[in-house]
Design a protein around this nucleic acid. Structure first.
Lengths: 150, 150
DNA sequence: CTAAGTGCAAAGTATTTGCTTAGGA
DNA sequence: TCCTAAGCAAATACTTTGCACTTAG
């Protein structure tokens, strides 16, 4: 595990290597994301950035967050650019396989997957949360879209 | 596992029992959701409903879908009413615990959880998908919010 | 010097809501 | 009859985009 400082330097180097430029705004956003372990929203990031660097716009914050996301340096949680999809077949949670290209969604039925049905109770016991549901979704490119890419 | 017809009847009965009314529009939406295994969006549901019952508005379709969701009869996939959150600490996917009340998100580190790191490769091998990432998120009410509810 | 980044405001999407009319129980 | 549901349009909320100006490399 890299230290925060090392990580910061590594990302800065990577940004330069890919032809992007380092600006004070970008630096500020980057620092917040590396320092803040609370999974902030873009707005929260922006609010923190403003403390040190008041001239940063929300749009710029969005752009930097998206850049880092595309570079694979940060992880987006619980957000879909796409519309909501509904599973009318079963009301029991089960894993889905989602194609990020054609947006198709299929049920995933892997025998080797652990017994998912019991997990919510286990998580509840260990954390004190009242678990209502969960999402277990894999994202990727489906075989059809992979072919069409060629 | 109930047959589609049984399921339809069960839900219709439940709707009546809860004081809701059965209308042709609601029936049409319900049928689409029970019949269509493709995890449709609201817009897709609406398009199918329109074939049989052209007078149904998109807003009404939204309302019925939400009703069924609240009744626990259908499952919402990959959608968050909330804003996107970002995890800047690690670029490796790991489970999250999300409070649906205060929208806090914490990392979940359960030793008893199966070795999640290898799952993407396994899913890829079994399905032919090029897996890019996955989400493993539990939703519920955190201990703090449970207390404040009293 | 020049391509890339910024800030602003406007545009886009997906979804929800308020209000009036219609219609199920 | 009474009260919920439908339909429409406007509102909302988050995010993206176009464009003129600025700035990093």
């Amino acid at each position: 595990m890299l230290s925060k400082t090392d990580r910061l330097e590594k990302i800065i180097a990577k940004i330069g290597k890919q032809g992007y430029r380092m600006t004070p705004q970008r630096m500020a956003v980057l620092k917040v994301l590396i320092d803040n372990p609370r999974h902030p929203t873009v707005e929260q990031i922006h609010a923190e950035v403003e403390k040190d660097f008041p001239m940063t716009s929300l749009a710029t914050t969005y752009k930097m967050v998206n850049l880092l996301k595309e570079m694979g340096e940060i992880l987006e949680i619980d957000h879909s650019n796409a519309k909501a999809h509904y599973d009318g077949i079963s009301s029991y949670p089960h894993p889905h396989l989602i194609c990020t290209q054609c947006h198709s969604i299929i049920d995933l039925d892997l025998p080797s997957l652990p017994d998912i049905g019991e997990l919510p109770q286990e998580v509840a016991q260990n954390t004190g949360y009242q678990i209502t549901h969960f999402q277990f979704n894999f994202f990727g490119i489906c075989p059809d879209c992979q072919e069409n890419e060629l």
